[in-house]
Design a binder for these strands. Structure first.
Length: 826
DNA sequence: ATCTCCCGCCATATG
DNA sequence: CATATGGCGGGAGAT
């Protein structure tokens, strides 16, 4: 009722059919009185006509090519839509796409330089823009609002904006990342995902509880807008209390990318988080829909900026729309002096704009400032959340591992390492324009990404018997599984965070895939694990990487650093653990101190692990950082399995078998994956070979927190299939479902063998390089995910060393239902 | 059917 | 008060 049916009008016209002059409709919009004439006929008719023409044709030459009637109709339609088009002939590409926000945004952006010279500011006059672009004002606001959120423009006065271009982007992103971290977004994501799987929608207290804790209990409406020093909203303008929701949403959305490990965020999750923040009370469906709509709007703009790109995450349930961050990796800033963010809520400081360049550089270089973060609700929340976490931990049923601070501390800190970073960064910055961006990417890439090509040296390392020790850092440790026959060892890096899934690859053998979910009994889980990301759309990405793509699946040196890291499995996200750590950190106030935890899913070369992890890798630091150092790097993967070169390739190949393991770590456990054992390349056959003593294994697992103290894991190959659940709760559920699932499992296995699926399971990374490329191609998507081994060429993953290191982790508990174990192999 | 998301009404903010 | 902003959600095009 409300909206005048434009449709109705349309229909009528259509009926009328060709009307040479569209004119009658000058003011089409409000014919309320013409409701339902024959809605269908006309409409359907029109649809048919349109559909008749293939989309392509339609868009290209629909005009000429189409038959008269159809063209007429189209025209008519066109006229209607654009009431003003006097001469309809011309292009008239009514297709909806032509009017998309994304396209419009491109046009808009085309008007201004990415990096306008500081000296001359460019102003934006909305009236002009709307006119020139032929769009309604409303649309421009959508674009501008998002740009404002990134501080690419700022409003001066009515109708007037200043164009800053991308100068502020680095700082903005850094600030956003920081805020995102402080906001526990990582945890929130986890929570949401977990819940999703557990029970689709059950509104039981448990859930609420969880939610509540995860999202700060109080839902203080904290719609805060993150500002940069020189770019705050001008007093005169939009400052008031209006929340600028689109702006805020946009920033939060971006934060999600910056914070999550694979920098992929599904709309669904984003929407939930954004909703949850303000009001967790009603999970209204309509609200959700609206949020999604808005997210699409934002996403379109961000896509135009090339900051994100659309992808799909495929889960068991099907594929869901998501976006992947393709923007610049955010530097882990260690301190921010310049980058402080202020919430709008507070009185906006009015500061002068600082030359962006300068700012950037300052920001990059730690001047050691204190955090200037303006305190805002997020901090408060943080505190609360921390408390909650602690509480949770303590009370946790399964006695989750607590991360002992001491452990962290024990790790050596290598401040120096960091030092290097800045230099690079600076360098990058200097070249501001795109060149700069590219450079960054390169830098980042150089190191770790190279996963696909392990070096020979690695093999050597592998061959050595590894010590089985828990890695020093809790967060990720490699698990090495001996492979009996092949003699190949695998290292699996478990990531505490979400993954929980580990994949084992067995060369020549059968593997059993254990769907995590099945094993675990948790439905959702696997799905996550399984999802694969396909990037089909990537529309216009910058040329930069194209060439690379062509490479075989295995190696694609990605150009983008971050990308690589993200590529890992889809599933995961950040772990709660990380947050914990962070929090603690924050509590202590010490910046880096000793916390070492790796970003989720990162693969760390053993050798370097120790230091690598330390600060840089620590939560915030990004892979990029690590990469720079080359030594430390991490791969976002959840599970990594190193194998001999020959095998490596196999991984890519569809044919090989992969057994996914679920390892679920208790949320708290930071621990890394344990190194199970190793076998050497040659070990050969024997399953019987008792390489890893079971006791040792158990010890490790327990140590790491992968299994509860009481649980014993058999020392044989079967182990490989051990699922570990990270969440205690899950475990419980699992037991029940286990049986049923088993059947399923087997099925899955078969499928796996067929190929294709490989990608879906956890990430497997071969440590060594495959000598011969067996199967060249796998869908890139899959490959990408799998092989993101960090570590550049130099990096050698020496499993041995690091793995042993972690003692601190001891507390972790590995939950492995025995049954599952049984199931697993057989 | 689902995913996208355009369109534009209308509440608010601004001047 | 007239406009400028921009929240919001219906509903239709794209797949």
């Amino acid at each position: 009722l409300k909206t005048p049916l434009k449709q109705a009008a349309t229909s009528q016209l259509v009926l009328t059919e060709r009307q040479p002059d569209c004119q009658p409709l000058t003011t089409p919009p409000k014919p309320k009185e013409t409701p339902p004439a024959d809605p269908w006929t006309p409409t359907s008719n029109l649809k048919m006509l349109i559909s008749a023409a293939s989309p392509e044709i339609r868009s290209r030459e629909q005009r000429k090519q189409l038959s008269d009637s159809s063209s007429d109709v189209l025209q008519t339609k066109h006229c209607l839509q654009e009431h003003i088009l006097g001469d309809e002939y011309e292009k008239s590409q009514p297709s909806r796409k032509e009017k998309s926000l994304g396209l419009l945004c491109h046009k808009f952006l085309a008007r201004y330089p990415d990096f306008p010279s500081p000296s001359q500011k460019s102003y934006i006059c909305l009236d002009e823009v709307t006119e020139e672009l032929h769009v309604e004002r409303r649309r421009i606001y959508d674009i501008v609002n998002v740009l404002e959120s990134l501080h690419m423009v700022s409003r001066l006065a009515r109708n007037r904006y200043v164009w800053h271009g991308r100068h502020n982007l680095p700082q903005t992103l850094q600030a956003l990342k920081k805020v995102g971290e402080e906001n526990k977004y990582i945890q929130q994501i986890q929570t949401i995902k977990r819940r999703e799987y557990e029970h689709e929608f059950d509104a039981d207290g448990e859930r609420n509880e969880e939610m509540a804790s995860s999202f700060g209990s109080s839902e203080q409406a904290e719609m805060s807008f993150v500002e940069l020093p020189g770019v705050e909203f001008r007093a005169a303008s939009v400052n008031g209390r209006k929340y600028k929701s689109l702006r805020v949403m946009s920033q939060k959305f971006v934060m999600l990318f910056l914070v999550s490990t694979p920098q992929i965020v599904s709309l669904e999750v984003a929407a939930k988080i954004l909703i949850g923040e303000d009001q967790l009370e009603d999970l209204d469906k309509s609200k959700f829909k609206t949020k999604i709509r808005r997210l699409y709007d934002i996403a379109n703009v961000l896509s135009s900026l090339k900051l994100i790109k659309k992808v799909h995450v495929t889960e068991e349930r099907g594929r869901k729309p998501a976006f992947k961050w393709t923007g610049p990796e955010v530097l882990p800033n260690t301190q921010d002096t310049k980058l402080e963010a202020t919430s709008t809520t507070c009185s906006p400081p009015i500061s002068e704009s600082i030359p962006s360049k300068e700012q950037c550089s300052k920001a990059l270089f730690p001047s050691k400032g204190k955090q200037n973060f303006t305190r805002h609700s997020s901090l408060i929340k943080l505190v609360k959340s921390i408390e909650n976490d602690r509480r949770k931990i303590q009370s946790a049923p399964t006695s989750p591992v607590k991360i002992s601070t001491s452990t962290c501390q024990s790790l050596p800190v290598f401040p120096n390492t960091i030092a290097q970073f800045p230099a690079i960064t600076k360098h990058q910055l200097e070249g501001q324009s795109k060149a700069a961006e590219e450079m960054q990417m390169k830098c980042a890439l150089s190191s770790p990404e190279a996963v696909p090509k392990p070096e020979p040296s690695q093999q050597a390392a592998l061959s050595q018997p590894l010590g089985v020790c828990p890695a020093s850092h809790s967060s990720v440790s490699p698990v090495i599984l001996p492979h009996p026959q092949s003699g190949v060892s695998y290292a699996i890096y478990l990531h505490p965070s979400q993954a929980h899934t580990v994949t084992t690859y067995s060369p020549g053998f059968m593997l059993q895939p254990l769907p995590c979910a099945n094993v675990t009994g948790i439905k959702g889980k696997n799905s996550k694990v399984l999802n694969k990301i396909s990037t089909e759309e990537g529309d216009t990405q910058r040329g930069t990487e194209e060439p690379t793509k062509s490479l075989a699946a295995e190696e694609r040196p990605d150009t983008k650093s971050e990308t690589s890291s993200q590529r890992c499995l889809k599933r995961s996200q950040a772990l709660p653990e990380n947050n914990l750590i962070k929090r603690r950190k924050s509590d202590e106030e010490s910046l880096d101190t000793s916390l070492t935890f790796f970003p989720s899913g990162y693969l760390i070369p053993l050798a370097h692990c120790t230091h690598g992890n330390k600060a840089e890798c620590s939560s915030k630091e990004k892979a990029g950082l690590c990469s720079l150092q080359h030594a430390a790097y991490s791969s976002p993967l959840t599970g990594v399995i190193p194998m001999p070169a020959s095998e490596l390739k196999a991984v890519n190949i569809p044919a090989f078998h992969i057994t996914p393991l679920n390892i679920m770590l208790s949320p708290n456990s930071i621990a890394a994956a344990p190194v199970l054992s190793n076998s050497c390349l040659n070990s050969g056959s024997a399953g019987s070979a008792p390489n890893p003593s079971s006791s040792a294994l158990n010890f490790m697992l327990q140590h790491i927190g992968l299994i509860p103290a009481g649980v014993q894991v058999p020392a044989n190959p079967v182990l490989q299939h051990v699922p570990v659940s990270s969440q205690s709760e899950n475990i419980s559920h699992s037991s029940g479902s286990t049986n049923v699932q088993e059947g399923k499992v087997s099925k899955n296995t078969l499928q796996l063998e067929r190929g294709g699926l490989s990608g879906k399971y956890g990430a497997v990374v071969p440590l060594q390089q495959p000598s011969a490329p067996k199967e060249p191609q796998e869908p890139q998507a899959v490959t990408e995910n799998f092989f993101r081994t960090p570590g550049g060429p130099n990096t050698e993953p020496s499993l041995s060393a690091n793995s042993a290191g972690t003692q601190g982790i001891s507390q972790g508990t590995l939950y492995i239902p025995q049954r599952k174990l049984e199931v697993s192999e057989d």
